[in-house]
Amino acid sequence: MMRNALRACSRPEPWRRGPVLTALALLLGLLLLSHAAIPDFAGLGSLVENVLPWFGVLIPALLAAALWRRSLAAVTALLLPAVAWTTLFGGLLPDKSHPGGDLTVATHNVGAADPVPTARTLAAAGADILALEELTPQATPLYEKTLAPRYPHHAVLGTVGLWSEFPLSGTRTIDVMNYGPLAATRSAAAKLPENRALHTTVTTPDGPLAVYVAHLGSVRLMPRTGFWTASRDIGAAALTKAVTADPGPRVLLLADLNGTWDDRAFDGLRAHLDSAQRTSGTGFGFTWPATFPVARIDQILYRGMKAGRSWTLPATGSDHLPVAATLTW
């Protein structure tokens, strides 16, 4: 049998079969390795990076086709995307959690979820600090009333809020909608509420913690302009500036970034913050849409601490899943 296999491999026919499959396998590998070099024309680069893990499903599909076609060239070429995908995302699959933790935090884009049961579910999760995004004037009083017994301190500015077991001070708005020259690129037809981010200092028993809560602008697939990310990118630049300038030794960002951690829009944030999901989670931790999550756009990011565990909480009626993490001082 071994002799027959070697004889089959030495024949030219299996290496000549499936040239299209071979080319597709090589292109897939190059895309995974060089996604940062894809031009962001019409948002193409950003779009690719937001769905980058899902390109992995093409590998077994191409392998099946290559085996059916009996193409040794295509099977060999598939080693490139397989190694590239494993290098990029293989480290996310194992459980990286550690026991213990000084602080438990959670964040949730509540959207259109029913405020009272959602607040009760989140309060029962045991977070010491809880951030909410996409609050409305109608829902905010219900969240405040329901969460008050669990969290004696809170601050709401616009559509974002923070609830805490510990005192808050110096709460202020972070303008993530009109930052610098990028603001001119925002479409007048896509005006969003101005107060979508805040900064506050949480006085924990172990010392002060600078906390940012943010809900960046949405991204959209537009018929004429492609993947529209202007509002999101403005907010990412504003958050990067704020985090970079923050003098505190410990910084926490709880946010709906409307983009995954691989998106080039967050290059600046990646240089200054770590992702709790990447360092202490299991799997990809997808959060959106809640019914069948395909992307991790809700993030717990930190500096000056260590993440012990990161996980998603049960669905609440929002189109996002809540996320939580434990942090060690």
Rank of each mutant, 00 (worst) to 15 (best):
Met177Tyr: 01
Asn178Val: 02
Tyr179Leu: 04
Gly180Ala: 14
Pro181Asp: 15
Pro181Gln: 14
Pro181Cys: 06
Ala183Asp: 08
Ala184Lys: 15
Arg186Asp: 01
Arg186Leu: 07
Ala188Asp: 12
Ala188Ser: 14
Ala189Pro: 07
Ala190Ser: 11
Leu192Ala: 04
Leu192Ser: 08
Leu192Lys: 12
Glu194Ile: 05
Glu194Trp: 10
Glu194Ser: 14
Glu194Met: 07
Glu194Leu: 08
Asn195Arg: 15
Asn195His: 15
Arg196Thr: 07
Leu198Lys: 03
His199Leu: 12
His199Val: 06
Thr200Val: 09
Thr200Asn: 07
Thr200Ser: 15
Thr201His: 11
Thr203Phe: 01
Thr203Trp: 01
Thr204Glu: 09
Pro205Val: 11
Pro205His: 12
Asp206Pro: 00
Gly207Cys: 09
Pro208His: 03
Ala210Thr: 06
Ala210Trp: 00
Ala210Glu: 04
Val211Trp: 00
Val211His: 02
Val211Gly: 00
Val211Ser: 06
Val213Leu: 05
Val213Ala: 01
Leu216His: 04
Gly217Ser: 12
Val219Tyr: 02
Arg220Leu: 04
Leu221Cys: 10
Leu221Phe: 13
Met222Val: 13
Met222Ile: 09
Met222Gly: 07
Met222Ala: 12
Pro223His: 09
Arg224Thr: 14
Phe227Cys: 10
Thr229Glu: 11
Ser231His: 09
Ser231Leu: 03
Arg232Trp: 02
Arg232Gln: 14
Asp233Gln: 07
Asp233Pro: 07
Asp233Ile: 02
Ile234Pro: 05
Ala236Ile: 01
Ala237Asn: 13
Leu239Asp: 10
Leu239Phe: 14
Ala242Lys: 10
Ala242Leu: 09
Pro249Arg: 14
Pro249Asn: 13
Arg250Gly: 08
Val251His: 03
Leu254Cys: 07
Leu254Asp: 10
Ala255Val: 04
Ala255Ile: 02
Ala255Tyr: 08
Asp256Met: 05
Asp256Leu: 01
Leu257Pro: 02
Leu257His: 07
Gly259Asn: 10
Thr260Ala: 08
Thr260Phe: 01
Trp261Thr: 01
Asp262Ala: 08
Asp263Pro: 07
Arg264Val: 08
Arg264Tyr: 01
Phe266Cys: 04
Asp267Trp: 00
Asp267Arg: 09
Gly268Tyr: 09
Arg270Gln: 11
Ala271Gln: 15
Ala271Met: 11
Leu273Lys: 04
Asp274Ile: 01
Ala276Thr: 13
Ala276Met: 08
Thr279Lys: 13
Thr279Glu: 12
Thr279Gln: 14
Ser280Cys: 15
Ser280Ile: 05
Ser280Ala: 15
Thr282Glu: 15
Thr282Asp: 14
Thr282Asn: 14
Gly283Leu: 08
Phe284Asp: 05
Phe284Val: 00
Phe286His: 14
Phe286Cys: 10
Trp288Ile: 12
Trp288Arg: 11
Trp288Lys: 05
Ala290Leu: 08
Thr291Val: 12
Phe292Ile: 10
Ala295Ser: 10
Ala295Phe: 03
Arg296Pro: 08
Ile297Tyr: 02
Asp298Trp: 00
Asp298Thr: 06
Gln299Trp: 09
Ile300Tyr: 02
Ile300Thr: 06
Leu301His: 04
Leu301Ala: 06
Tyr302Trp: 08
Tyr302Ala: 00
Gly304Val: 08
Gly304Ser: 05
Met305His: 10
Met305Glu: 06
Lys306His: 15
Ala307Tyr: 01
Gly308Tyr: 00
Gly308Met: 05
Gly308Cys: 11
Trp311Arg: 07
Thr312His: 02
Leu313Gln: 12
Pro314Arg: 11
